[in-house]
Write a protein that binds this DNA or RNA. Structure first.
Lengths: 128, 128
DNA sequence: ATACTATGACGCATGTTTACGACATAGCAA
DNA sequence: TTGCTATGTCGTAAACATGCGTCATAGTAT
């Protein structure tokens, strides 16, 4: 019993237990992770504020090196939150507003669920 | 000029440049980071689903060790997203719904800003 | 062709997160 | 007291994130 259990356990060690969470939870966490750095929040706000897509001089507007900004751009791009099209020497990055709207709904649903009940208080069994 | 610049730069190296982003951006990123792991999303959903606050047997409902779950609880607690009150042998954890509502508004505002414009398309200078 | 510029790829150093076992503590109950 | 149970603390290993300098590539212009 414990032998087989140990073998099964071995396969699910270290970072792999994540697979046991629901797709919904993992999806939300993945997007949240993309927003979990001020630089990436700033990049999205920057792209949102420009009518036309701006190129890699995004780096010029942030207090980070071009290399680092590029890395953040890649991360957002990997989740398809932003798109990048090469146009000659420059690259035009822009928001994927369709996906952002979907994501917005996921977050809205999550927060609705989380704030639905008044949680603990004088009317519940405990009083946090 | 470049001498003083270098000194100033030295104070803001490595992870400290974060200070150059707005409070708003940092706050959003901080909360997003708290939601950036499926376990923490699951914990919040779990607490939301229970009428009464449940104790540390949260761990029993998640595919993680008690120690690891405790660590995630601490992280959420550090941001005051959840509260924990000791009641004899057990601890009652519960959501801080007031704060969650504030956070909800921050995210709503961010996504509104991000999805306001149709971004790139046939009507803009580039066509991502 | 040559030089210039905007991008992107690579590698490395440092710090942070995640996960867990082993130990410590503190209430409760026999 | 003694043992049991629910919590919390510590140390540690592995993975991941962050930041940047350096080099490679590929358009553009002279």
């Amino acid at each position: 019993m414990s032998y087989i259990y140990d073998i099964l356990l071995a396969f699910s060690m270290t970072y792999a237990k994540t697979a046991a969470f629901t797709d919904e939870q993992q999806q939300l966490a993945r997007i949240a992770k993309a927003l979990a750095h001020p630089a990436r929040v700033a990049i999205i706000q920057l792209l949102a504020s420009k009518q036309t897509c701006i190129s890699g001089d995004i780096a010029a507007e942030l207090p980070l090196s071009r290399t680092t900004v590029f890395q953040h751009l890649q991360e957002l791009k990997a989740l398809d939150l932003i798109r990048g099209e090469i146009d000659g020497l420059t690259v035009c990055y822009c928001l994927n507003t369709d996906l952002l709207r979907q994501v917005q709904q996921q977050f809205t649903a999550f927060f609705l669920e989380a704030t639905a009940n008044p949680a603990c208080g004088p009317d519940t069994t405990c009083a946090c």
